[in-house]
């Protein structure tokens, strides 16, 4: 009879074989096979455990302890190897799943705001921040509100059928949004701090700097002690906010029937910075808006007492500002409505 192998020796050999095979398993499947081979129900190590009953009591205890230790050691080895193999496999499959991230995404189409309206909204925002509320007036306005109440002299050319559109006796397409001054002052007592954005119409022949229908933002601030210094402070801050903090501003006298004293606000030329160029006709300055202290006659027409309140008003052409700000040379481009042009104003850049 062949002398049987020492069970403990056999166990030791099994353990070391198993460890080697675990480490050399190249895939989860290989590893599973190794597990089945040693630890499965019919595995080699399981077999030895099952045969424990055949050994003597002393031997059984010792061998049993050894086999159980080996079993849990191998299980741990398998788990560790399994984790390593799984990680490797995951990594490989992630690699396989990679996409060409330079392909364009499924972007949602975004439209754009018309540059005139974009400019108008920017203007509104600046004045909103300074305490001005936006209000509106009708485009068909009474001749009284559009001209008379604003102290427009009877001879003023803007009243002319040649310069303004009429739709009925006494009804004109507003030539500026200023008549809303009268409407707001008639509807409430001072203080009033409003801007009036809106479309206006003048009977001009369209050219590079005129269109028939254009947008204007009018402003009015009336209170018990509003001065020319307030006007300058407000409008200079506005100009710097819209055109940049380095912008220099200048106020010079001008004439408007509805303000006295009146002024024109110029900014340092955005193209040449003041040195002189084609845009500024070599003066270094470009005109931005008209303004002035509300004429006492306007207060009288609106039912305010010019001896007790003062105020300033201003008005600006939105298109003109858009042209300056975006460097557009011809105003008609704005109203050609070419999508290739309009889409350029998609961004948020101020």
């Amino acid at each position: 009879m062949k002398r049987p192998m020492d069970p403990s020796e056999e166990a030791r050999r099994l353990e070391s074989d198993a460890k080697e095979e675990i480490l050399s398993a190249k895939s989860l499947e290989d590893l599973e096979a190794v597990r089945v081979k040693y630890l499965g129900r019919k595995g080699l190590l399981t077999g030895l455990l099952r045969k424990l009953g055949e050994a003597g009591p002393d031997e059984r205890r010792e061998l049993g302890r050894f086999l159980n230790a080996a079993k849990s050691a191998l299980s741990a080895e398998i788990d560790a190897r399994k984790a390593a193999l799984k990680a490797a496999r995951d990594e490989a499959s992630l690699h396989e799943e990679s996409v060409d991230i330079t392909l364009p995404g499924r972007a949602r189409e975004i439209g754009s705001r018309h540059p005139t309206i974009k400019m108008m909204r920017e203007i509104m925002e600046v004045f909103l921040g300074m305490g001005f509320t936006s209000i509106e007036g009708p485009e068909i306005e009474t001749e009284y509100n559009n001209f008379d109440a604003l102290n427009t002299p009877e001879w003023h050319p803007s009243r002319d059928e040649h310069d303004s559109f009429y739709v009925a006796d006494g009804l004109v397409l507003r030539t500026h949004t200023s008549p809303a001054q009268i409407r707001v002052m008639k509807s409430q007592p001072a203080p009033v701090r409003v801007i009036v954005p809106g479309r206006c119409h003048r009977r001009d022949t369209p050219d590079a700097s005129h269109v028939i229908s254009f947008y204007q933002v009018e402003g009015l601030y009336v209170d018990y002690e509003v001065s020319m210094a307030d006007l300058k402070g407000t409008l200079a801050a506005f100009a710097r906010e819209i055109f940049g903090t380095e912008t220099r501003v200048r106020f010079r006298p001008h004439f408007f029937p509805f303000t006295e004293p009146s002024a024109e606000l110029d900014i340092s030329c955005l193209v040449c910075g003041g040195k002189g160029c084609r845009l500024c006709k070599n003066s270094g300055w470009v005109e931005v808006l008209g303004c002035g202290m509300v004429h006492p006659n306007v207060f009288r027409h609106a039912g305010y007492d010019p001896r007790s309140v003062t105020g300033f008003a201003f008005g600006m052409g939105v298109e003109r500002l858009a042209l300056l700000k975006y460097g557009i040379e011809n105003m008609r481009v704005l109203y050609d409505n070419d999508l290739r042009f309009l889409k350029q104003f998609q961004g948020m850049h101020a």
Binding site: G131, T133, R193, V226, A229, K232
Partner: peptide, 16 residues
Amino acid sequence: YDRVSEQAKASTRCYG
């Protein structure tokens, strides 16, 4: 005109 100072009063009596 350039000698008039630039000031701006905040009024709490009317706000935007």
